[in-house]
């Protein structure tokens, strides 16, 4: 076959066979990067709300304008009340949550590692976990006093149980071949726990931290609403009973920011501790 023959043949087939591109079907189902959309939604919502309040579409009695809530917040800062409330709340949150998580990780490790502890503690954990801890607050008041003790205890118990469950789940999921490897190199029991089990369970422990932190914030506010002089929860309750809805919104905004900060901190911890996952 000569070269011109080939050329002729391709010419002919191209015309005759109706050449077309293969349709692309692989799009979608992939997380994209829309960085500015989140803040934009926030801004549009707030602006619309503000405009609605100013034009009278939204009654001030029902929902105060964002600017009024901001003003209430500014007053809080000026009178120094903000730090009083926030400081009291943060202190309870940090103490209660860190104690709860520490104890939770310790007990979770025991449940995960010791069959006897699992047999003894797991039913107990399963029975106590679903109790709304706020229902126990009156009991905690009797046990630990009306002051800080009962509030810290509520938060502690609230963050303890999810941490136990996350930790022992994480321990269960640690790759057994890694444990065998440790044993085969003659590593001691404690070395295996510290260097293989604990880092291997760390992703689960950290996602448990996320859950327990949000539970802790909810319990913080609930406990402060029941009886506290200072604290964001007490402030919100007081504002609500005075129908000072602008202050109430200011308090709620504080809680939202608190939640965001906590989740950002845990995100940072995750990036630091789980860098190896890439």
């Amino acid at each position: 076959m000569s070269r011109s023959d080939v050329a002729e043949r391709t010419d002919m087939t191209e015309a005759a066979k109706n050449l077309r591109a293969v349709p692309y079907r692989g799009g979608g189902f992939r997380p994209g990067h829309w960085r500015f959309v989140g803040p934009l939604v926030f801004a549009v919502l707030l602006l619309g709300w503000e405009a609605g309040s100013r034009s009278g579409v939204i009654s001030n009695l029902v929902l105060p304008a964002p600017s009024e809530a901001l003003e209430a917040l500014r007053q809080l800062v000026e009178t120094g009340q903000l730090w009083l409330h926030l400081g009291a709340s943060l202190q309870r949150l940090v103490i209660g949550w860190s104690l709860g998580v520490t104890l939770g990780v310790a007990v979770g490790l025991m449940v995960g590692l010791l069959p006897l502890a699992r047999a003894g503690l797991l039913p107990l954990v399963s029975a106590l976990f679903p109790i709304p801890k706020i229902a126990l607050l009156p009991l905690f008041v009797i046990w630990f006093g009306i002051g800080e003790g009962s509030k810290v205890a509520t938060i502690l118990f609230g963050s303890f149980f999810p941490t136990v469950i996350a930790t022992y789940g994480g321990v269960d999921n640690v790759d057994r071949t890694l444990v065998r490897m440790g044993q085969s190199f003659g590593l001691g029991w404690w070395s295996i726990v510290r260097k293989i089990i604990l880092p291997g369970a760390m992703p689960a422990i950290l996602s448990g931290c996320r859950i327990s932190a949000s539970i802790a914030i909810i319990l913080l506010v609930a406990a402060e609403m029941i009886g506290a002089e200072y604290g964001v929860g007490a402030y919100v309750l007081m504002a609500g009973s005075l129908f000072a809805t602008d202050q109430l919104l200011a308090g709620v905004a504080m809680l939202s920011v608190l939640g965001l900060v906590v989740s950002w901190l845990i995100g940072r911890a995750e990036r630091r501790l789980l860098r190896w996952r890439g």
Partner: peptide, 14 residues
């Protein structure tokens, strides 16, 4: 007595 494992058994965080 030291093993070499099929799936390497390296700690991914080290």
């Amino acid at each position: 007595l030291t093993y070499v494992f099929q799936d390497f058994a390296l700690l991914p965080w080290r």
